[in-house]
Design a protein around this nucleic acid. Structure first.
Lengths: 339, 339
DNA sequence: CTGAAAGCGCTAACAT
DNA sequence: ATGTTAGCGCTTTCAG
């Protein structure tokens, strides 16, 4: 029923190995003649390589796992950002003959199981916390940790230059003349993505000469709702604040909504800077000024690293930080004299 | 290095087959004693089944493909809706011992190749057009086509009850007293998702007694931008229209933005109904009145069908339509007397 | 309830 | 430049 190498070999009057070599592009070992003939027959017969067989024999699968943490009962609801990354990586890998296995991870041990069980050639770890990445003890397989600052030498971090993004946001607010600012982001431990953004922001503010205690901070979840709630009470809880930096656009947009509800105008009364540059960020009114990540570069870089490690076997390498870019729209202005 | 069945067999003093049976839950064939002993040893040794080997021997892979059409140069940028579906299905399948292979399809032939090459146990086709689904000629593997109305007997459609959704939207506008309405959706051929929604909408309007030519229609892409553009010129191009039904919330939200820009008030001057109930739809002001899909049901249903077909070998079955629900927020009101 | 034999389709490591 | 020999780790089939 299904055509296999031996069928082609027979039809071409050569050995199975020759066909195998042709199919795998090891053309150096076969004459042009044979290559052409074998290729032609394979095409005519509609040969499709059997991937499990190949994986078993070669003990490499041409599969890269996209591993995503997931609670027992929630489906892996990856963020739009993550989706874009995985999709992009799928494309890169596919063009190089690799495939992507999407796998939710409920317990940490499953990472190793997935890698061994599937003979994964590599894995990209998405949305894990730095603490989780730190705990990984798997060698021999390229592991790319997206948006991680873990120092685990077994993994390679690929992330945005969050510190710089924070700095830019801070500098922007400082340049506009704000002297009382607020950082809004999720609770965090260590210097992960959020920590980096905060530090960058803080540094820029301090460098501009405003005092320590003029930099407030609010721990809120990265959701529209939490943002709205903060927006509603901003005036009350932080009367002197005229500039806000939110670690995510969803949050920033929520804050804008809350602010609007409580009669505070953006950017007349309060300026806001977001992070991410989501599609919707261009559609709010005023349009959200935000820090954009270089997504295509991030994707390309992650794919390139995995591929290089798999094929060239390059050892663990340095983490990579991708650039950020300020997208100025309408949510930043100068603080009013009265403020 | 890696533990295999034979290692366990040796340690337990039984044959490989017995271990295999235990590992596969064919407990009927093995005594409790042995099961316990084998299980214990397997756990202690940290046995992880080799999936390629299993696939090769059994010629079934425990893999379900998530197939998504993709242009040569664009990465598979699936919609948030699709992502949620795939994520949900991954969870269901994983709990039943299956896995999801994410695969972009550039040419139709790749569908068959993927299935044969991987010995996929099933596939879920996502975001294909009905025309593409129609052309599929693959037998012997359960194929679930998401949001498809194709009559191809080789595939099973799982979709929302779009016709009913359209009807509800139409009825809502009719009940509010609108007499000149507009349908806004992407160009389509045949009775796919969009066609169904339109027909449902149209029927409700006609049933309410308004004439044929009081139901306008605009072909616009399902994007914020196209919606905005339509919103801006709505008054000019359709001066009599007081109610709009958009086939997607993004589109509806774009229309609202365009309307706002041109000084038209929602719902005072124009009412709008969307479809999908995205997160952001609750955050516009006024909140978007829309038709919500029953996502969890859709996911569960798709997973259940695939699983049933794989395990019980149930033949092709009837397509499934999931319910819709009206979510009333603030974008529908009565047309002004003057209109 | 348990086991022995055979082979899934392919590739690595030597031959030739 | 091509062929041979051995498996990869598991399951199927058929015998006990």
């Amino acid at each position: 029923m299904t055509v296999k190498l031996s069928d082609i070999a027979e039809a071409a009057g050569v050995s199975v190995m020759t066909v195998s070599n042709v199919m795998n592009g090891k053309r150096a070992r076969v004459s042009q003649q044979t290559i052409a003939r074998v290729q032609e027959i394979a095409d005519r017969l509609g040969y499709v390589p059997n991937i499990p067989a190949r994986s078993l024999a070669a003990s490499r699968s041409h599969i890269v796992g996209a591993l995503v943490p997931v609670g027992e009962n929630n489906s892996l609801l990856v963020s739009p950002h993550t989706v874009a990354v995985i999709g992009g990586i799928e494309q890169h890998l596919r063009h190089h003959g690799y495939h992507v296995l999407l796998r939710g991870i409920e317990h940490e041990g499953e990472i190793g199981q997935a890698i061994r069980g599937w003979s994964l050639d590599g894995a990209i770890l998405v949305e894990f916390t730095d603490a989780e990445i730190d705990r990984i003890r798997i060698d021999g397989v390229p592991l790319v940790a997206l948006d991680s600052y873990s120092a685990n030498p077994r993994t390679i971090g690929v992330r945005t230059d969050d510190h710089r993004g924070g700095w830019i946001a801070g500098a922007l607010l400082m340049d506009a003349g704000h002297r009382h600012v607020l950082f809004a982001g999720p609770p965090y431990e260590g210097m992960g993505v959020v920590g980096q953004r905060f530090e960058g922001f803080r540094s820029a503010c301090l460098a501009a000469g405003i005092p320590h205690d003029a930099i407030g901070s609010e721990r809120v979840l990265t959701t529209f709702e939490d943002g709205r709630e903060l927006g509603r009470r901003l005036r009350r809880d932080h009367p002197e604040v005229t500039g806000v930096f939110a670690t995510a656009d969803v949050l920033a947009i929520g804050i804008m909504a809350g602010l609007a509800e409580s009669g505070v105008r953006v950017p007349d009364d309060v300026s806001i800077v977001g992070f991410d540059d989501l599609d919707i960020s261009a559609y709010t009114s005023p349009g959200l000024t935000t820090i954009a990540q270089d997504m295509p570069a991030k994707v390309a870089e992650a794919a390139r690293i995995i591929l290089d490690e798999i094929e060239k076997g390059e050892g663990p390498r340095a983490p990579v930080s991708l650039g950020v870019r300020l997208v100025e729209r309408g949510t930043v202005g100068s603080p009013r004299a009265s403020a």
